[in-house]
Amino acid sequence: MKSGTLLISQPFLGDPNFERSVVLLCRYSPAEGAFGLVLTRPTPLVLGDVLPLPPGAPAASQRLPLLAGGPVQPDTLHFLHQRPELPGATDLGQGVYWGGDFDLFLAGLADEAAAATVRLFVGYSGWSAGQLEQEIEGGSWIRQPASAGKVFTLESDAFWRSILREKGGRYRALSNYPLDPRLN
């Protein structure tokens, strides 16, 4: 498994933290575990709600929406972007970068077009060594390798369904699985 892999939850996962979610794997080590960000959980918050921005920060940065990156440390802020020149950024592949110098990141958000190329997250998803592998073996996750570029091409509310349909075959059928099959 590599950074830049998408983890797509099975429709019958049963965990409210990850129900119908897509997680971008940002860091993976068999010995240390994994770190990812849920791409499908919008919150009602914007950046200006949770962080006092420095004077002169671009107005566009105040209104950046926040997504819930996962249930771990919801008081932390993480970001994805398309700025390879940002010092400290980690390349996830396909023109997607994770983290870096936050002050320079904010300074680069001078207009709405720049703001459209970022995603901000509160919290993250984490797995200890061996945990994610067990969950994949147990059928909780479907892997989509080298798909980081999808982050900026699909809307968060339709991401899960869209990525399954795109995979085709039996995954297309899973995309239509009802939230509660007992109501069918």
Rank of each mutant, 00 (worst) to 15 (best):
F102T: 07
V50N: 10
V72S: 05
L77S: 12
F79Q: 09
T90R: 12
G69D: 05
G149N: 08
V122N: 05
F159G: 04
F121N: 03
W98P: 07
P181N: 05
L13V: 04
P145R: 14
P16T: 11
G99R: 06
A116F: 02
G56A: 13
F105G: 02
V22E: 02
V38K: 00
P65D: 03
N176W: 11
P87N: 10
L174P: 07
P42R: 15
R20V: 10
S162R: 15
D101S: 11
W98N: 08
P84D: 12
A107W: 08
G99E: 09
L183D: 05
R83S: 07
L53G: 12
L132V: 01
E137F: 03
D180R: 11
S156Y: 04
P55M: 13
K150T: 11
V22P: 02
N17H: 10
Y124L: 08
S61N: 09
D91I: 08
A89E: 05
G14S: 11
I8S: 00
N176F: 15
G108E: 14
I142Q: 13
L64A: 09
E133C: 01
A34K: 01
S125I: 00
A158C: 13
R63L: 13
G168F: 03
N176M: 10
W127D: 03
N176I: 07
A107P: 11
G100N: 07
G100H: 08
G123Q: 04
Q131T: 03
G139F: 02
L109Y: 05
V122H: 05
V50R: 14
L47W: 04
F79R: 06
P44G: 14
L24K: 03
L66G: 04
I136P: 00
V50W: 13
L154W: 09
P74I: 09
S140G: 09
Q73M: 14
N184A: 10
A113T: 13
Q144C: 13
A146L: 14
A148Q: 06
F79V: 12
T117I: 02
S9K: 03
V151Q: 01
W141A: 01
K150F: 08
G130C: 08
R27M: 11
L132G: 01
L6G: 02
L179S: 12
G14Y: 06
V46K: 12
I142K: 07
S175W: 07
P71K: 05
A59H: 14
F121S: 02
Q73P: 11
G126I: 03
K167W: 04
E112H: 11
P87F: 07
L92D: 06
L80K: 02
E155S: 14
A129M: 07
G139M: 03
A31H: 15
R170T: 05
S21I: 00
L24I: 14
I8A: 00
C26H: 06
I8Q: 00
V50I: 15
P54Y: 13
A158N: 15
P178I: 14
A89Q: 04
